[in-house]
Amino acid sequence: MADENDNERIDENQRPDKMFTLKKWNAVAMWSWDVECDTCAICRVQVMDACLRCQAESKKDSYGKQDCVVVWGECNHSFHYCCMSLWVKQNNRCPLCQQEWSIQRMGK
């Protein structure tokens, strides 16, 4: 029925007169970090941001970027490298799962 009506109107007015027209639309995109835990459990700042200490000292590397990297353990838990290197000096275990800490990878 609707198709027939539309066709009739097109014939009459020479342009499609639709019941609804789209005047405006907003696109929404979602994203998340590709890590299991996005907050450093030691300093409670997002791992992709500089750690609390680096923020306090506003440490920058020679390119003027924050030089605070993320470290992943074999247990897949991630922390700021700065935070973790302080902790392993006392206890070489992951603070979250208590497994022996060994580095799987580092970077951003």
Partner: peptide
């Protein structure tokens, strides 16, 4: 406990 023997001591979390 600062130095944990059994994993039950202090942790920064």
């Amino acid at each position: 406990r600062r130095h944990s023997v059994d994993g039950m001591g202090w942790s920064p979390i």
